[in-house]
């Protein structure tokens, strides 16, 4: 969103998107779980050209002490884009306003699914480091963080996935890359709990009619089935040594 309209590229050629996808096609997604030794749980995701690491530390004693909640674990989340992660020159690292907001909405997702009552007084840290960004990094990062959280053995109600739907002209489509994202007419990242399709994260800007919103919902739920399977496979592969499937 918000790119200059002066040099807008053709986003749709012969009914297909620039990379040959149809409107309901996801980019290729690969997830590997348990990739970092020190973290309790971790995952690496390649989603199109996005490359993102997610790691979970904790539960550990909450710091500073006055932040601790005597009844439940607090969850902290830091989403960050590496200074070298984008095509558009060096970007300042550290929390900017965009990253602060994304960190907040991702934290709220995990407050929903993590059984925080089991770890009173502790904190659980979720780190999402975008090493290379190409559109849809919050959805990809959240999808990976979910796998990292399960890999950490932290008890959760569900394995949440996230994906973005949007609009190019009259077409509602799923999973924009950076160029589509820059010149699209709407963008809506959503996180869903697959067991009941509840919406845990929802952001949107641009323009959607009621009908287009309903269409976006269908695309998200369809894509979610694929993403969920990839998440589960990543977790299963961690334990796929001989004798596992007796």
């Amino acid at each position: 969103m918000g790119g200059s309209s002066l040099n807008k590229p053709e986003l749709i050629i012969d009914g297909k998107r620039r990379d040959g996808r149809s409107f309901r096609d996801l980019r290729p997604i690969k997830i590997e779980a348990s990739v970092l030794k020190n973290a309790e749980g971790s995952a690496y995701i390649e989603w199109g050209r996005n490359k993102i690491l997610a790691a979970v530390y904790g539960p550990r004693e909450a710091t500073p002490k006055h932040m601790a909640n005597p009844n439940k674990a607090i969850i902290k989340c830091r989403y960050q884009m590496a200074p070298f992660s984008s095509l558009e020159g060096h970007s300042r690292t550290g929390p900017n306003r965009r990253a602060t907001e994304i960190s907040k909405v991702i934290k709220e997702v995990f407050e929903n699914v993590v059984m925080v009552n089991e770890f009173p007084g502790s904190e659980i840290d979720v780190f999402i480091e975008v090493l290379q960004g190409d559109g849809g990094t919050r959805a990809a990062g959240l999808t990976a963080a979910s796998v990292a959280m399960a890999n950490a053995g932290i008890r959760m109600k569900d394995l949440v996935y996230a994906v973005s739907a949007g609009r190019i002209g009259d077409h509602v489509a799923i999973d924009f890359d950076m160029i589509e994202d820059n010149y699209s007419d709407a963008d809506m990242p959503v996180a869903v709990a697959p067991r009941n399709n509840d919406v845990l994260l929802l952001q949107m800007d641009g323009g959607f009619t009621k009908e287009q919103f309903a269409e976006a919902k269908e695309l998200i739920l369809e894509a979610g089935k694929t993403i969920s399977e990839i998440q589960k496979d990543a977790l299963k592969r961690v334990y796929d040594v001989k004798g596992a499937s007796e």
């Binding site: 709220e108 509840d198 919406v199």
Partner: peptide
């Protein structure tokens, strides 16, 4: 005529 922005907040959920 169009939704222009949306934001869900807090840890609870909504159904579609």
């Amino acid at each position: 005529s169009s939704i222009r922005a949306m934001q869900k907040g807090l840890s609870g959920s909504f159904s579609f």
